[in-house]
Simulated scan of single mutants.
Amino acid sequence: MATNESQAAGAVLKDTPPTDGTPTVELRRAGKAYGNIRALHGVDLQVHPGKVTCVLGDNGAGKSTLIKIISGLHRHTEGEFLVDGEPVHFSTPREALDRGIATVYQDLATVPLMPVWRNFFLGSEMTKGAWPLRRLDIEKMKKTADEELRNMGIVLDDLEQPIGTLSGGQRQCVAIARAVYFGARVLILDEPTAALGVKQSGVVLKYIAAARDRGLGVIFITHNPHHAYMVGDHFSVLRLGTMELSAPRSEISLEELTNHMAGGAELAALKHELAQVSGVDVEELPEEEDLTASVAATSEGKS
């Protein structure tokens, strides 16, 4: 679906965000049930402008369900979902996008054989001329894409190259720049570094920080506590559909975050069980008190 130049040249949001410190996005005791299966329960989450909120969790923890609620793909079935302090019930991702909530999924929603500039405007192409002679404004789209990518620090020699020829990190960065250009105020990133090596992960983390510095609220979904701690301002850990940890950076160390992510209490119990099995040497493993100390300390801080 094409759009005219005035509509495509940056997003025009339907609502003016408040400036009194109200979170752009907030979940209050939110949850989602699929019939008798409760996928998410009692989740509290706040996303503020210019902050990176990291949501961590193992497979099956509820991260995907959380993304679907905030992005408008699924409605929450319990609790509250607020945008700019107002309760919302999105029916489609388009409604979420109209409120400035954009999601970059792992597949990036790109067409590998199309040029970079065409993917940048995919679904929101600039046009010129009057109907029925309206046509794509290719030069304007190329120039705009190049400017926006450079504003994010991404310099590509040839915007005509198929986006599939870019590295995984570069494609992630193009998707981030695209979301920023089209008016995202909250950017949800679904495991952007999961399939990348160390160097390319570093590239993506740099642009996450750049998006934060431009005033966006970023929700960084990941299972890697080291990546999260590099750019995160607030950390939330999901386990089996509930929020096990919610703490600002000032109140938690990387070691504590890693211990929560690894399930410190469960590991302590596992060590105790392994000690009862003949032939298993648990002497080299950390003491049970060491495994649970940081978990207990952080849990006390939450209460």
Score class of each variant (00 low, 15 high):
Ala96Asp: 09
Ile101Val: 14
Ala11Thr: 00
Lys199Gly: 05
Asp15Trp: 09
Leu270Arg: 15
Leu159Gln: 06
Gly50Lys: 01
Leu189Arg: 00
Ile176Pro: 03
Ile154His: 06
Val231Asn: 05
Gln172Leu: 13
Leu291Gln: 04
Val237Ile: 01
Thr292Ile: 15
Tyr34Pro: 13
Ser246Tyr: 00
Ser201Phe: 13
Ile188Ala: 02
Glu255Ala: 13
Glu78Leu: 09
Val43Asp: 08
Gly183Ser: 08
Arg29Thr: 06
Ala39Glu: 09
Val280Arg: 07
Ser303Val: 12
His76Gly: 08
Leu267Glu: 11
Glu191Cys: 07
Val155Met: 10
Trp131Lys: 10
Leu149Asp: 07
Leu56Phe: 00
Ala211Gln: 02
Val88Asp: 08
Glu266Gly: 13
Val83Ile: 02
Thr53Glu: 05
Arg94Tyr: 05
Lys128Trp: 01
Arg28Val: 13
Gly129Tyr: 04
Thr22Met: 09
Val83Ala: 05
Thr242His: 04
Tyr229Asn: 06
Thr22Glu: 04
Thr19Phe: 05
Ser91His: 15
Ser253Glu: 12
Leu187Asp: 01
Leu108Val: 04
Val116Trp: 01
Arg29Met: 06
Gly202Phe: 13
Cys54Ile: 05
Leu45Ser: 05
Ala30Asp: 02
Ala30Cys: 12
Ser236Phe: 00
Trp131Leu: 15
Leu187Val: 08
Ala2Trp: 02
Gly72Asn: 09
Lys63Tyr: 00
Pro87Asp: 02
Arg28Asn: 07
Ala268Pro: 10
Phe235Ser: 11
Arg28Thr: 05
Arg214Ala: 09
Thr65His: 03
